[in-house]
Design a protein around this nucleic acid. Sequence first.
DNA 1: CACAATTACGAGGGTCGTAAAAATG
DNA 2: CATTTTTACGACCCTCGTAATTGTG
Lengths: 279, 279
Amino acid sequence: MIELYELRQFAAFGETGTLSEAAEKLHLSQPAISRNMKKLEDDMGVTLFERSKNKISLNDNGQYLLELAQKLLSDAHDLPLKVREHDRQKHTISLGVCAPAPIWRLASLIANVFPQMTLQTEIDDDKRLLSDLANGIYQLAVLHEKPESNNLIVKECGRESLMFALPKEHRFADRKSLSFADMDGENILLMPNLGFWDFVKNEKMTKTRFLTQSDRYSFTELVQASSLPCFTSDVADKFMEIPSGRANIPISDSEATVTYYLACMADKKKTFEPLFRVI
Amino acid sequence: MIELYELRQFAAFGETGTLSEAAEKLHLSQPAISRNMKKLEDDMGVTLFERSKNKISLNDNGQYLLELAQKLLSDAHDLPLKVREHDRQKHTISLGVCAPAPIWRLASLIANVFPQMTLQTEIDDDKRLLSDLANGIYQLAVLHEKPESNNLIVKECGRESLMFALPKEHRFADRKSLSFADMDGENILLMPNLGFWDFVKNEKMTKTRFLTQSDRYSFTELVQASSLPCFTSDVADKFMEIPSGRANIPISDSEATVTYYLACMADKKKTFEPLFRVI
DNA sequence: CACAATTACGAGGGTCGTAAAAATG
DNA sequence: CATTTTTACGACCCTCGTAATTGTG
């Protein structure tokens, strides 16, 4: 019977070129490797080595076995990792979202309903969210358009209205509302990874120069220090620490207000029913 | 370190359902399996079993590991077989042919030029022969159309002219030549696996009813006993035992005479040069 | 009470290391 | 003569088996 330790030694030899180095690599003695290579050769039933009196090297069969052995050893190495990953998946809920805001409320709800589970969130677009929900990468997804599929369980989970956060001295600071067009062309601070909200940047405010700052902490610092407009929303206003001294002006465009929908596959209805009930 | 013997025991348990049966299957004692399953579980770092006091079964992780382990064990099992097959390939020349006739002469030539090699032949159509030649399944191929590719070494290796072998009492037995059309509609004995010659059956003699007999010995028996026409060729006439008492009538159609071409990949020119020289 | 799993302990196989020999450049 | 492989021999690890224990249907 072939055992992995033999293949490990064989691979070590194949990678080092001499029995001595292989032995050193594996913290074994040369004779041990020498013996086991003979045994391996015997088990394989064909020659694996070119042997001269004080030199040994792989022949064609050996080269071939080396490839196979490396593949097998790699698979064997991954085995515990895969099983642990499989186990970990059982204790994590993977949530895909189309924008950051829905996470804030859902995170605490999920933590309450499934106290022993850890939450893993990822931002992606609606299309990918739906397909990755179907193939099991996500157990839950938050979309901004109500999906029409009868193997999904769907429930509204909040709305969000985008606003401009303007410094008091801004010329529009006392407006009751603004449109995207009103502000288009200004320099605006922007936090990236806004999910589907990126469409504003790409479609509604094409003339605007956006200054992005990826780190969330740095971003709030920047907002405090700067006199540039930035975005906020009613949801952000409730859940996040808002830069003081700014006027939050609602955005009049219909696209600035969205409804979020939480979805899971129908076959997981029972699992997530407790969550859907408290939303 | 995980070893295969542990996975073998785990797989045996997974397939039998109880430690006792697994032990019996592997000719081991239950305690041995019990211990090793604990060790395996320990090495994996997650629980693999549902344990009650006198019942043990796979949990979800265990089920998952079972799949992975079976795959790995299967790969490990194949390892010596693959290496032996690889070794065998070094001692065999694989020859693809488009029809049986070229084999007869080539077989003895190859045996003379490469005495230590064994010859393996297979019949296939020209298209497959060329692609399988390129991807290394064949080292040599015999085609009936001269291939135009500059990474091939090609040389003519004989011609073959198809003939009808008619019993003396057949109405055409004293003809000097016949066309496919002349004989179309008769009942004809046919040996299958004729390679590209099948086009005759499929295109030239569509009205004919062919009686096939796959075994070569039975076929010659049948030919002796029967008074039905059959095919032969000038090459077959030279190399095979020909049914006596038959008239061999050449076929006048141009398609009934072909030239065969032996080909190998250009990078094997040196290997097969001795063979090409004697053709 | 038959059957399954676990625990405890001793036996044995096989893998390892040390030492020595042989061969090479 | 340093380096490498192979052979020989003894030690020890580790896996196995037997026997006993516990628990279940």
